[in-house]
Simulated assay, not measured.
Amino acid sequence: MSVPGWSAEVRRDDGALRGLAAEWRDLYARSPAATPFQSHAWLESWWTQYGAPGRLRLVLVRSGGRLVAAAPLVLGRRWGCPVLAPLAAPLSDFTDVLYDPSADPRALDHLARALLREPGWTALDFPEARPGSAAHALLRRWPRQAWRMPASVCLDLPAGDLDTFLDRLPGRSAGKMRARLRKADARQVTAAAVPAERAVAAVGALLDLHVRQWQDRPINPEHTRDRFRRHLAGALVPMIREGQAELFEYRHEGRLVASDLVVVGHGFVGAYLYGADPGLRRIADVSLLLLREILDSSARRGMSRVSLLRGEEPYKMKWRPVPVPNERLVLARSSGAHVYAAAARSRAFLASIRHNPDHP
Rank of each mutant, 00 (worst) to 15 (best):
E9N: 01
A16C: 07
E23F: 09
Y28T: 03
S31F: 11
T35C: 04
F37W: 15
V61H: 04
G64H: 04
L67H: 01
V68K: 02
A70N: 00
A70L: 15
G76Q: 08
C81G: 12
L84I: 02
P86K: 02
A89I: 09
L91I: 14
T95W: 07
D96Q: 05
T122N: 10
A123C: 15
P127N: 03
P127H: 07
A137Y: 06
R144K: 13
M149E: 10
P158R: 13
G160R: 14
L162P: 11
L169W: 05
R182P: 06
V189L: 09
V189F: 04
I219N: 13
H223L: 13
R225C: 07
A233G: 10
G234L: 08
A235D: 05
M239F: 01
R241P: 03
R251G: 01
V262W: 07
V264W: 01
G275H: 10
I283N: 13
V286K: 08
V286L: 13
S287A: 15
L290M: 14
L291M: 15
L291P: 06
S298H: 02
R300G: 09
S307A: 07
S307H: 05
S307F: 12
L309G: 07
N326F: 01
L331T: 00
A341M: 05
D358W: 15
P360D: 08
